[in-house]
Structure formats: C-alpha cells, structure tokens
Design a protein around this nucleic acid. Structure first.
Lengths: 221, 221
DNA sequence: TCTCTAAATATTGCATAATTATTTATCCGC
DNA sequence: GCGGATAAATAATTATGCAATATTTAGAGA
C-alpha cells in the first residue's frame, strides 16, 4: 500500500471558523462589528450554512455574540472583563508553570534564555508583545498538559487583542524584563513556589498598568 | 406601556444545545455514542440545520467530537484527561477562592456551614457529590467574576461526568469532609494563603483517589 | 464457510429555497 | 416638518433537496 497522502479536505465550517478567528484576534474588526452571514459566505466561497456553524463556535469561544434574529457581532470587552481574563491568566499559567518546572530540560531553559537576550536587544515596542509571549509559553510548554495549554493560549489570545499596544508601551520594557530574568533564574534553580509567586505578581502588574492607563484614557468612567 | 412579558422564544440551536448538553453531562450517553442528526432533529422537532449548529457548539465546549463525514460522537476521556481537568480545577478554583475570601459576607459563610451540616447528616454516597459541589461553589461565588465562575462550572461538569460515582465512594466521606470544615474555618479567619493551599491539596487528593481506583479497575493499563 | 467485491442503504455536508423577524422607506394625518 | 402607521426591503432562521461519503448488506467465487 502506497503511503498515500491523506486527501484531507477540511470541512467548510472549520475553514470559516479558523479564518474568522484569526481575523478577529488580529484585530481586523472593531468591537461591535456585525458579521453578516452572506458577506462572510461569499468571502469564503460557501453558503450561509457553514458560516452559521462557524459563528456558533466562535460564540462558544467567546469571540462573538449572537443576538437572536439580528445576527452576530464581534464581542467587546470592558476593562473589568479584561482584568478578569488576566485573573484567569494567573490561574491557568501559575498552575502550568508549577507543573512545568520539574519537567524543564536544559534546552527549554536555553530557549527561554535566548528569547530574553533577543528581547533585551529589541527596541521597538511592537515586537515586545510577541517575544514576551514566546518567553512565557516556553516556560509553560513543559507541563505537557494539552488542554491546559490550549486554554492558556485561547485566553491569552483574547486578552492580547485588547492589551496589545496599550500595556507593553505603558508598562515599559525594563521592569517586566527584569522580572522575566528573575523568573527564569527561579526556574533554573527549581524554586517552584517562588517562581509561581513571582509570575502571579508579574501578571498582577499588568492588571495595574492596565488600570492606570485606562484611568488616563477614560477618566470619567 | 404595559409591562408585557417579553415573548422571548429561544432560538432552536440553543434549545438543542442546552438539551443535549444536559443529557451528556447527566451521563445519558456513553462515551463514543453517535449523535445522529436526523434523530436529534426529530427529538427536538426541528430540522438538521439547528442541530448541526448545536453540535458545533458542543464540540467547542469539548463535549463531543466531530469526525468529518462521519458525524459527531460523545467524547470519551482517558484517566490522564480527567487528571488534567482536575489540575484545571485547581488552577481556576484556587484563584476564585483567593479572590472570594475578602468578599465573603456572613450569609455566605452561614450558607456554607449549613451545607456542611446537611452533608454530615447524609448517609448515601449518591447525594454527596451534589452537596460537595454546592459547598465548593458557595465559597467561590463571592469572587464575583462571572467568566471565571462559568469556566469553573463548565470544567467541573466535565469532570464530574466521569468521577460522579467513582470518587466519592472511593474517597469516603470523612476525610474530604474534615477538609471542608477546615477550609471553611480558614475562610472565616480570612487566612487566604492557608485556605488556598488546603484547597489545592484537597483537589490533589481527588486526583490520588482517582488514580488509585483506576489502578484497581484496569490493572493492565 | 470464508473472503472479496459490488450494490444498496444510510448518513453527512452543503446549497438552494421558503419562512420569519427586523429594519428601513413611504405615506398620511396633523 | 413631525409622529405614527403601513408597506417594502433586508437579513436571519430554518426546512427541504441533492450530491458526496461512509456503512452495511448481498452475492460470487475460492
């Protein structure tokens, strides 16, 4: 039997879902934007049926909201919502870190170190976000818990959609980066409790930065 | 203007989704059971279109799995999967407890106490599960984080589908219940760190019980 | 009897069509 | 002009139908 490449044709609903999700997370739509079904259908070259299935999944993921008989709109998040998602980041990521540290290999630590070095060298704030996340992810991945990791990824995607530019600039680079180095050191030394505590404070710092910048942005609310 | 009751008719996909989810979580289907679209549609008195939307949502929730061109089956979980979900319980619930304790009112503590008293009096293991969860929930609810709480609820639903009978019987009543009393005391005294630590160990205990009973159940694997 | 193949059957996937709800436009009285 | 009712247009929702894929059954040959 020839090792025939499985002719995997992804079902339409999944293509639409993945495409829309990428667009939404990339910030291509503003909050409240209405996703018209025939429009999306035409864009993906299908009928509205697969589109509706995709939209329902994105609804379950919390990216859009369905209004009965009025369609789906891209979900907006309040400051409180984002702060809560940062609490969820703390919850999930501290657990992942705790489980990951005993499993960390030298390569994992080296990879994290390398990211930090590049981070140190980088000057444009726009690049910080991605490197920041790569570093965190490198620390969590060794926990080897696929569901936990995918929840972390999904939650971070939501958060970053709203904090992308704001936080990294506001918080600056030096303080978070200092904490990153400390965090990596603690991982190296296997100091689980201290590392977890630091990570918690590290993300709480993001909460504070966000609150501070938001207070500046809309002082009335 | 008359205070007319809004004639809110829930859309079909949501009815089907909620109905199927309840059935699955109640354990009415065994893992691997195929949910035929015609069958479900007839059961709910609709066509297959809303059913497909409901199934897609349940897929996103992790309750079923879609196999292209073969339909949807109720998802089964391995021991590792359930243990991982208990890790997620620890992650989410320790955070919720930490945030809840400063907000706990006397009524919250009294409600929790009352559940424990009824728990002490109950003799049938089948009732333990629900009371156990009511107690935990009462401790988390004051955190006032709706998304965190709904994640906790969803995750617990998945776990309990597989641990319902197994764990509560295997672990017995006395040890978990002793920990419940301790936990409530720590909440009363506002000892956040100690309470969180105890909760973590409490759920880890469930992991151990589960591993122990599973080792007894299928010794080969 | 067993196995392989092919027809029959069942089921999914998706497009089209019909229905229903909502929004927008138009008209009329004031 | 300004409401307010009515009609047209628009969009969402759901039903139906058909093609594609998978599964089962039946039959032929060893």
């Amino acid at each position: 039997m020839a090792p025939k490449q499985a002719p995997v044709r992804k079902p339409a609903p999944e293509l639409v879902r993945d495409g829309l999700r990428a667009s939404i997370l990339a910030g291509e739509f503003e909050a409240g934007y209405q996703l018209r079904q025939d429009e999306v259908a035409e864009q993906f070259g299908t009928s509205r049926i697969p589109v509706r299935e995709a939209l329902r999944q994105l609804e379950s993921e919390g990216l859009i909201v369905f209004h009965p008989n009025k369609g789906a709109v891209v979900k907006g998040l309040s400051l409180e919502d984002v702060l809560e998602m940062l609490d969820i980041r703390i919850a999930l990521e501290t657990r992942a870190l705790k489980l990951a540290i005993p499993n960390m290999a030298v390569e994992d630590l080296d990879a994290a170190q390398e990211i930090l070095d590049r981070y140190d060298a980088a000057s444009e704030p726009d690049a910080w976000g991605e490197m920041n996340w790569n570093f965190h992810w490198t620390l969590y991945a060794p926990c080897n818990k696929s569901k936990l990791l995918s929840m972390i990824e999904a939650n971070y995607g939501h958060v970053s959609r709203f904090t992308r530019r704001q936080v990294s600039r506001a918080a600056g680079k030096s303080r978070p980066q200092k904490e990153h180095h400390e965090l990596l050191d603690l991982c190296r030394q296997g100091k689980i409790e201290k590392a977890v505590d630091l990570l918690e404070r590290h993300i709480e710092q993001t909460q504070k930065s966000l609150q501070a910048t938001s207070r500046l942005t809309d002082p009335a609310r």
